[in-house]
Write a protein that binds this DNA or RNA. Structure first.
Lengths: 256, 256
DNA sequence: AAAATAGTGTCTATGAGACACTATAGT
DNA sequence: ACTATAGTGTCTCATAGACACTATTTT
């Protein structure tokens, strides 16, 4: 397969830079479309769940897809991802990070679309107000592999039936799961999935949901307390039917 | 700052998908330009070095830049990065991985350019045949921070003077250094910077060049020999002026 | 009192760093 | 013989897992 040669960067020489810029024609070559897609993850019922939209129009009409949209000429990539979360889910101040850029040739049947994927993490409680629409759902993520080596993942509806995903969005979701599994042990990302005050057991449950396996309680406690990421609030749980646990806060800024 | 709303994805309803695709007009909205930039790194003189090109045309004419080029409509992102390495450096079969996508608004003075950055690793011996042109150089990377937290890095010429870098390429280089420092301990990337057969000391020197600090010899040996990534060849160095070290090979495929 | 989870103390296995020692090439 | 690096054996320290035990709340 011979790729088409790149558009030349040369110019009639002898100009200065301002002259060059005044004459530059960005439409001289065909450009791909560029979009962002956002994997919004939360922890619900002991497992990961992701926000998906039902496609109302072609292509892949009726299938489920990650919230996304084309990049505007006047917004940065981060701004575009933030806008998508606000317009599709009404969410703001969500922790967000770039994931990977997908640009395979046939990934969108319309035309060449390059998509910069982001992933976002949010406390499940903040999603209560948002959803249960016909076109917007929070679907359970089913990861058919362990550790950080694996491909696409499945999304399941309430009955546990697989949802049909549009485009390469199952691959994007799989990449997001690999990324947060890999970062969990050395970056403070578990906190983004919890309310501002939480117990160590809640934090452990978040880690277990991300990793898809159980963790050793003692070792987890020690590691977290030694990490300098937690600050005890001095208060405790109330009305829990057993000895109440101490509440902690994340020491850093929680929302971006 | 209010970002421009995204182009609508809706269509006149009632069509089927093939009708929709036949009528789809990808030029209906303005698209950004999309390019790839490649950080080609090697280890030379105990430190990292990167391949850079002197810009022959505006913008930033005369400054040094990462090898890059616009994406062709008929090539994937990986193919574009591979093509850039072949056309600018004459290199093929180089280990290559996507790094990050840079899309800030003012990063290119011509127009909106979104650049998917890649990083590539290569044995310094393979670069001997390539360079020493007036427009192509291998510049020493000077990292002004330790660990994986830091911003841009500098490139130095043979006299140790900083090179003027075009666009946001100092940031891209900094991101590449952070990435390989972070991956070094759990991914087999040091091997890509060595010839097919190498000694443990050579491997340690590569790790030290990447991390910018010295490592414990005993611990490094043990860790590597226990890692299942090395296969002893049974042969030894010759003509080295001291006890010759055993030669090893990387157990996995070395070139992509 | 029973149930359920919170939290502590201690033992053990593992891996990294430190250090001393032996081995083997060229000069 | 001398020098420089290769490679081995052993000690110590830090951390994770395992396990036993005590503590505190609601029902």
């Amino acid at each position: 397969m011979r790729p088409r040669p790149p558009p030349p960067r040369t110019d009639p020489s002898g100009e200065d830079e301002s002259q060059f810029l005044a004459q530059y024609d960005p439409g001289a070559f065909e450009h791909p479309s560029v979009s962002v897609d956002v994997v919004l993850l939360t922890v619900r019922d002991g497992g990961l769940a992701s926000l998906v939209c039902k496609r109302a129009s072609h292509p892949h009409k009726g299938r489920w897809s990650l919230p996304g949209g084309f990049i505007g000429m006047g917004e940065s990539l981060d701004q575009a991802a933030t806008r998508v979360l606000r317009s599709k889910g009404g969410l703001s101040r969500v922790w967000l990070e770039q994931l990977y850029t997908f640009g395979a040739l046939g990934r969108d049947p319309r035309t060449r679309v390059i998509s910069i994927a982001y992933y976002a993490l949010i406390d499940a409680a903040r999603l209560q107000a948002v959803e249960t629409s016909d076109a917007l759902a929070l679907a359970r993520v089913s990861v058919p592999w362990e550790g950080e080596a694996g491909g696409p993942v499945e999304l399941l509806d309430e009955e546990g039936e697989p949802l049909a995903l549009a485009f390469d969005h199952a691959d994007i979701l799989g990449m997001a799961v690999r990324r947060i599994r890999g970062k969990l042990d050395w970056a403070p990302i578990g906190f983004q999935l919890l309310p501002r005050e939480f117990t160590l057991l809640q934090l452990q449950n978040v880690h277990q949901a991300i990793l898809g396996r159980t963790l050793n309680k003692d070792s987890f406690r020690r590691r977290m307390l030694a990490s300098d990421l937690l600050r005890p609030t001095g208060t405790r749980q109330a009305g829990v039917g057993h000895r109440p646990a101490e509440l902690f806060r994340f020491t850093q800024q929680s929302a971006v």
